[in-house]
Design a binder for these strands. Sequence first.
DNA 1: CCACAGGTTAACTTATCATTAAGTCTAAGT
DNA 2: ACTTAGACTTAATGATAAGTTAACCTGTGG
Lengths: 225, 225
Amino acid sequence: METKARKVLIADDEPDILEILKYNLSNEGYEVITAKDGDEALEKARRTQPDLIILDVMMPKKTGVEVCQMLRAQAAFKETLIIFLTAVNDEGTQIKGLETGADDYVSKPISPKVFLSRVNALFRRLNKTEARILTIDHLTIDPERFIIKVGEQEVTLAKKEFELLYLLALKPGRVFLRNEILNQVWGNDVIVGDRTIDVHIRKIRQKLGVDCITTVKGVGYKFEL
Amino acid sequence: METKARKVLIADDEPDILEILKYNLSNEGYEVITAKDGDEALEKARRTQPDLIILDVMMPKKTGVEVCQMLRAQAAFKETLIIFLTAVNDEGTQIKGLETGADDYVSKPISPKVFLSRVNALFRRLNKTEARILTIDHLTIDPERFIIKVGEQEVTLAKKEFELLYLLALKPGRVFLRNEILNQVWGNDVIVGDRTIDVHIRKIRQKLGVDCITTVKGVGYKFEL
DNA sequence: CCACAGGTTAACTTATCATTAAGTCTAAGT
DNA sequence: ACTTAGACTTAATGATAAGTTAACCTGTGG
């Protein structure tokens, strides 16, 4: 099996640092995206949905802490790993960073080896909830191949339909609020009407022919066979 | 509901360090267990099943790295958080530590504040997958799944009913004034009639079939089995 | 036996979801 | 560039569940 490469976004205003980290992370098999200031980091984070975001605390436009706060406020980045990077060995910043919801904190000057080890350690812990093939009863969802099977019957879902179903099926039984669904599937900035979700739910139910999505009125939807 | 305290095991041969960390962690509400060497750490870890283990790298009997390896080899400790602690700011050790499967690595001298932040950050990440499920006797309230169970029987409550029951069940025994309930469940600005709460209480009692809500005349309601 | 607080019930109002049809947009094929 | 099909969104309508109200009932303490 081939594992989809982890995406790492690095945001730092010093080109040297970007280069070094990019080189090292690429060598380890990570897919690296770079940004040179806070705004660019936010924008690229949204577009590329990285698995790990490395933020320099001192950056133009927006500081790393600000970026982190803005990201954590969005449902799509609640789970994303975030590492702070800073030349300042300032205790206050460090605490603030971790309390903002960062997962680690590394001081410059950076030893690439140590840095890589930390990154690997973080991913090791995360590994559990990775993109994988879901099989619930006679229903199979393969996000890698974009295929759904009901028994032996193969069903084709459209992109949004698929993402929606996959989201729900990742945590069977758990209720997803309409807002959560919008954030996860559509993105935080996109504004769509109230009925859009319903229509997609309907199509999924119709195409699958199995009633596996339960409505919880006033709350949201949940996957349940 | 009583929140189960997180258990933290600290292993270090320096009594001062043990004292300082114990003091700080206890203050944060953690339950602290201490060990003064590698063997004792292993033994107490097995006995108490802590949520987090803090290991000094340099310890008598067994080093922190050895302890970590032995722990990780056991299924029961695959998920346990482990932090290394060391006076040696040695890169080699650091890498070895993280590769052994530690989740973080802190160098002495330790700033208690920073240390606490790191601990909290680790737990925060872990917390995600744990829902705030209330279990009182044979009654289970799962806000994530929006499900209530009485014994094995699943009961479906409407949104307001659920919110009301959850509010009361969060602090069993405590009496909630009618006003408190209105504010919490309905919101401060919404104005509803006097009998509205009663009706909802009634429906909950009816649906659950168990009398778990007690009326305190002239005051309010409380959850009680 | 009355007053008061809450319980009960059914009728009423509102919110929310399902369904359908129709419109917009995008990308592939000719 | 034109056509077309599928994906996605929106809007209108209807159904149903949720929430509220009001009128009446019950029980308890003075």
